[in-house]
Each structure stands twice: as C-alpha cells, then as structure tokens.
Simulated assay, not measured.
Amino acid sequence: MEGRNACIRYLCCACCLPGWAAGIIWFIIIAIIIVIIVLAAIAGTFIMPTVDMAGVSSNPTTGSQISFTGDGLRINFGLIINVNNPNLLSIDLSNINATAFYPTPKGGRPQIGGGYLEQQAVPKYSHFNFTFPFHIEYNPDIDLDQSILTDIADKCGLTGGKKQDITIDYTIHLTAKVLMVKVHPTISSSATFVCPIDVRIYPISIA
C-alpha cells in the first residue's frame, strides 16, 4: 500500500522544488510523453516495405563477369533490387544474405550460388533501387548428368543459339532497422532474367 500512487506523489513534490528545478522536471516529463506519442503514431502507420527484383546488371560489382575454377563455372553479375518504402522513416538494411537454387528439368532444386551485401540504406518515401552482388556458381558435383550445365550454356547462347531467360529460386535473409527496432524478414521468391553473359566468344559445345 505504501507504493500506491507513488508517481502522483512524486509529481506533486515537484511543486515543492525551486521554480527552475520544477520546470526542468516538467519539461522532461512532457518531452517523454511527446516522444511516446510520436513513436506510437509512427508504429501504428508503419507499412512493411516491399522488395522486388527490377532487373539484372551484366556488370559485376566485384571480379570478372565469368571465371572458371577447376571444373566449375562462376557467373558474376548484379541483381537490381527495388525497395518500396512508403514510410516516414528511412530503413537500414544489413547482413543481406541471398541463396540461389536452380530448378532443374528433372524437378530438382540444387543450391547454385547467392550473394552478400553488408549494408544498404533505403530513404523514406522512396522507390529505391540498388545493385546486389550476385553469382551463379556451377559445381559438377551436383550435376552428374550435366543437365544443369547444358541448360545454362543453351540459355546463355554459349552453344550458338539465342539467349533465353534463366529462372532461379532465391531466399534472402536480412536485418531491417527502423530507429531502435530490428526485424529479420526472410524473402523467398523466383526471378527470371536474360543470361547476363555478354557473349563475345566462339560458341562452345557441351560434351
């Protein structure tokens, strides 16, 4: 019972303090109330931003466009990511980690690459585009019948035909921070795009 209405008694005690001290206390109290109201209003109107792929950049952000590692093949390019942020506050994205999966003609879904970006700021009230470093990495250990290699070579025009669309499934894990609040959304979807390789070599054949 001794603790009942303690806050009210403390507020009343402010009247017993010197004028300057009571003014400071009331200023702090009112400021806290205003901040709480503003944060509550922002949280109540917050809309989760949407993330979509807006295209493909054939210019890799790091390294060469295509490289060979032993029996493997690595294609480096950039995914142009569009973030629609309709909110009053900017959003900080960090630890953006993507994993790519290749739907095979036989119905499999082996992991075939991904990408990582440490940090990206998204302005308020914006449709914001940024380039996410991405790669497709072919490993013959997951493609014993070479069906994936043949499919990639055909769609990239490396066997003499026209370029075709490549479809990959992807999962993106990231951390989104607004003020002091952090969330960890996971985005899973598919992307279809023209092979980013600029074919300036002679056609090759797949054995």
Rank of each mutant, 00 (worst) to 15 (best):
M1T: 06
A6C: 08
I8R: 11
I8G: 04
I8Q: 08
R9K: 13
Y10T: 08
C12Q: 05
C15N: 14
C15K: 14
C16V: 10
G19L: 15
W20T: 15
A21R: 13
G23V: 09
I24W: 12
W26L: 14
W26H: 13
I28E: 11
I29S: 11
A31Y: 02
I32T: 07
I33V: 05
I33S: 14
I36V: 14
V38G: 05
L39T: 11
A40Y: 10
A40W: 10
G44T: 05
G44P: 11
T45E: 08
T45D: 10
M53V: 14
G55M: 02
S58D: 04
N59C: 06
P60Q: 00
T62K: 12
T62N: 07
T62D: 09
G63C: 14
S64F: 11
S67L: 03
F68Y: 11
F68A: 08
F68V: 02
G70V: 02
G70R: 03
D71I: 00
G72A: 03
L73C: 03
I75H: 07
F77Q: 08
L79H: 14
I80D: 01
N84S: 15
P86C: 08
S90K: 10
I91W: 06
I91N: 07
L93C: 10
L93T: 02
S94C: 01
I96L: 02
A98G: 12
A98Y: 11
A98Q: 09
A98R: 07
F101K: 13
F101Y: 06
T104M: 07
T104D: 06
K106T: 09
K106N: 02
G108A: 12
G108W: 02
R109F: 06
Q111T: 00
G113K: 01
G113Y: 01
G114F: 06
Y116Q: 10
Y116I: 12
Y116V: 11
Y116G: 05
Q120D: 04
V122Y: 04
V122P: 07
Y125V: 13
S126D: 05
F128G: 00
F128P: 00
N129M: 00
F130R: 02
T131E: 02
T131H: 01
F132Q: 04
P133V: 02
H135R: 05
I136Q: 01
E137A: 07
E137T: 15
N139F: 02
N139W: 02
P140H: 00
D141G: 05
D141I: 01
L144T: 12
L144A: 10
Q146E: 11
Q146G: 07
L149C: 04
L149R: 00
L149I: 02
D151K: 04
A153F: 08
K155N: 07
G157A: 09
G157C: 07
G157W: 10
L158A: 14
L158H: 12
T159P: 05
K163L: 07
Q164H: 01
Q164N: 06
D165R: 15
D165Q: 15
I166N: 01
I166V: 14
T167M: 12
I172N: 01
A176L: 04
V183R: 15
T186R: 13
A191G: 09
T192V: 15
T192A: 15
V194W: 03
P196L: 09
I197S: 04
V199T: 13
I201H: 12
I201Y: 13
I201Q: 12
P203S: 15
I204P: 09
I204S: 08
A207R: 11
A207C: 11
